[in-house]
């Protein structure tokens, strides 16, 4: 074994995938290259239709790439499918549970599909169910489970055979905020306690931000940025201080500043230092409110593509100007 192989859980090189729909060719992946280190929590962030699911299907051996190479847990996803399959756990975007079986039965079947039997099977299933706190619900039919419980059950199932890499495709889509937070906790726990490498896709910037140590931003089948959330946000740049005053006030000259209605938008690098100056300067005008806006991954995406990560309602003017200022 080559030593450098061992360091990476996933290595992808110039991956391309073209779907043929009749005569029309759709290029879902246009040369994607990235690496995921062992033990890392890696996120694939991008809007719907960016190629995230296609990437996961290729990495989990369910789809063959048109060209390029992908190595997962040391094995080629095209030539050594079975070796890869033994070493990965997958939580698909759409639930893949049997609703008419109990939680225990779902995991029991999974364990058998992965060749486990006897005492070892029972112990692993019990451990996995306990890990996501579903052991007491083991005899309930899955159809009676809430969305959050199903997701947890799927995570448990993906862990039964002790994989090296866990793939999660949009793990919290459609969940309420409370269930989302819980799912995040479990994903973190899998990574930290079991040392499992996490590869997840998401279109939620907060999910990528809070959960992932490193992310790649993907858009239209290409990776457009890669790094830790902090690094990426630092690239976009600056914090914006928003000041509202009682009486109309001029722009502070020391910083880049713009007026937007009754608000003053000041872009700064060191927030603490700047705030001292700003407060001093505007005190005479009667400060009503001071807000600090730090750049988010949404802003990173906007800066790179000129589009929002998620198509949302019309933006208000202030938000637009804040965004624009961050990008300097």
């Amino acid at each position: 074994m080559k030593p450098e192989r061992v360091m990476y859980a996933v290595e992808v090189e110039n991956l391309r995938k073209v779907y043929k729909q009749g005569k029309v060719e759709v290029e879902a992946l246009r040369g994607v290259t990235f690496k995921v280190k062992k033990g890392e929590r890696f996120g694939f962030l991008g809007p719907n239709g960016a190629g995230k699911t296609t990437t996961i299907l290729i990495l989990t051996t369910l789809l063959e790439p048109t060209s390029g190479k992908a190595i997962v847990a040391g094995y080629d996803v095209v030539k050594q499918k079975n070796e890869v399959r033994k070493r990965i756990g997958v939580v698909f975007q759409d639930p893949a549970l049997d609703n008419y079986l109990t939680a225990y039965e779902n995991l029991y079947i999974h364990a058998k599909l992965y060749g486990l039997k006897g005492k070892e099977l029972e112990e692993r299933v019990k451990e996995a169910l306990s890990f996501v706190d579903l052991w007491e619900h083991r005899d309930r039919l899955v159809i009676t489970f809430s969305g959050g419980m199903r997701r947890r059950l799927e995570i448990a199932r993906a862990l039964v055979h002790e994989p090296e890499v866990l793939f999660l495709d949009e793990p919290t889509t459609g969940l309420d905020p409370q269930s989302r937070a819980k799912v995040w906790d479990y994903i973190r726990k899998v990574n930290e306690e079991k040392g499992v490498t996490i590869f997840l896709t998401t279109h939620y910037m907060d999910e990528a931000d809070k959960l992932c140590e490193r992310i790649a931003i993907i858009d239209k089948g290409k990776i457009i940025a890669e790094g830790s959330p902090e690094e990426l946000k630092a690239k976009v740049g600056k914090n914006v201080v928003i000041v509202e005053t009682e009486r109309e006030a001029p722009c502070i000259e020391k910083y880049k500043c713009e007026k937007a209605g009754n608000k003053l938008l000041i872009s700064v690098e060191d927030v603490t230092k700047a705030l001292i100056d700003i407060i001093e300067f505007y005190k005479p005008y009667g400060i009503l409110k001071i807000d600090v806006k730090k750049p988010t991954l949404d802003d990173v995406f906007l800066a790179l593509t000129g589009r929002e990560l998620r198509e949302e309602g019309p933006e208000n003017f202030a938000k637009y100007v804040i965004r624009r200022m961050m990008m300097r």
Binding site: R85, I88, F92, A96, L97, D98, H110, L113, Y114, G115
Partner: peptide, 18 residues
């Protein structure tokens, strides 16, 4: 349609067996 097939297809077991 309900996704369970993926669970079977991604498992290392020979498909003829399942």
């Amino acid at each position: 349609q309900f996704g369970f097939l993926k669970e079977v297809l991604v498992a290392p077991a020979p498909r003829w067996q399942s």
